[in-house]
């Protein structure tokens, strides 16, 4: 008894009944629900009660649907006579308006799409899907364009000239002495670049063994 758990089986059976009702194979009003409730009642115990809560909810939903069907059937019997009987009570416009309350529906229709467009979009998507990428190497071409990052030549030359004028009085001196009074590392780096250029141009010479700069 402890291991008997039919909840899964009952759930599947209810799902199957719901599908059959939807597809019109069976009519809920003709279906006996007693066997389902009896099965739940006979197989539920303290050990499987947690699994049975969903089965019970599903069975109650089915019962509720059956009540709805019955309610609909009863209310649609001789409906034209009911309408007439209601109108014979001479209801005013507000009373009639109230009868419709909660009965209105709002349909969903989406006009911008068309089957033609869906077909077009589908074909376009399939056709334009790229599955293989080929890497093509770019060909390098000569250009006369000037780039913003390029520093104009005359300014740089002027700066080198100014630096040369400033240090030539100190020469000959040790390499470090050229930057003696400068504390800013950026300035020192800039002046070092000028010095390299001056060495390259041959305006200043450097003797490695004595660490000396001279003209």
């Amino acid at each position: 008894m402890e291991e008997l758990d039919l909840s899964e089986k009952i759930n599947k059976r209810i799902a199957l009944i719901k599908d059959d009702v939807l597809s019109g194979k069976i009519n809920l009003l003709e279906l006996q629900l007693n066997p389902i409730f009896s099965e739940i009642k006979n197989s539920i115990n303290i050990h499987n009660i947690e699994n049975y809560s969903q089965s019970y909810v599903n069975a109650l939903e089915l019962l509720n649907d059956k009540f709805e069907e019955l309610k609909n059937l009863l209310s649609s019997l001789d409906i034209e006579k009911k309408f007439e009987a209601f109108l014979k009570t001479h209801p005013n416009e507000d009373q009639i308006f109230d009868i419709f309350r909660g009965c209105w529906r709002k349909t969903f229709h989406f006009e911008p799409i068309s089957l033609k467009f869906l077909d077009y979009a589908s074909n376009r998507y399939i056709k334009e899907r790229i599955t293989h990428y080929t890497i093509e190497h770019l060909t390098k071409e000569e250009t006369n364009d000037q780039f913003l990052l390029e520093v104009p030549r005359y300014k740089f030359t002027e700066k080198i000239g100014a630096f040369y004028d400033k240090i030539k009085k100190k020469l000959p001196c040790f390499f470090e002495d050229v930057f003696d009074n400068e504390l800013d590392q950026i300035e020192i780096y800039e002046q070092f670049v000028y010095l390299l250029h001056l060495l390259q141009l041959g305006k200043i010479k450097y003797q490695k063994d004595t660490n000396t700069l001279y003209i």
Binding site: S76, A85, I99, C103, W104
Partner: peptide, 17 residues
């Protein structure tokens, strides 16, 4: 048939009567 839930209307009418 689109705008009205006729079944619901029938039930409301039956209850009203």
């Amino acid at each position: 048939g689109y705008k009205l839930d006729l079944q619901k209307l029938f039930v409301r009418l039956a209850l009203k009567l």
